[in-house]
């Protein structure tokens, strides 16, 4: 389900904006995955507009 959710995010910038701001319902995604999505998007939003590599270090 995570993969499908990420694909839908990648295809829809409005969904992506909602997810980045933490205002998107994420059905079918586990709480741990939800947290990881939010953290990853937050780091990306702080650094650059488009996706970039996020290191966990």
């Amino acid at each position: 389900m995570l993969k499908e959710f990420i694909r839908s995010l990648a295809q829809d910038s409005q969904l992506m904006n909602l997810a980045t701001s933490g205002n998107l319902q994420m059905a079918g995604v586990t709480p741990a995955e939800k947290r990881a999505i939010f953290e990853t998007l937050s780091i990306q939003a702080d650094k650059k507009d488009n996706y970039q590599l996020v290191y966990w270090t």
Binding site: L2, K3, I6, R7, L9, A10, Q11, A32, E33, R35, A36, I37, E39, T40, L41, Q44, N50, Y51, Q52, L53, V54, W56
Partner: peptide, 20 residues
């Protein structure tokens, strides 16, 4: 990789393991 969400997917899965 970027437009398909592949990079995001990899980063999220990586972070899920790191958080665990």
């Amino acid at each position: 990789y970027e437009k398909s969400g592949a990079m995001l997917y990899g980063s999220v899965v990586m972070r899920t393991h790191y958080n665990r």
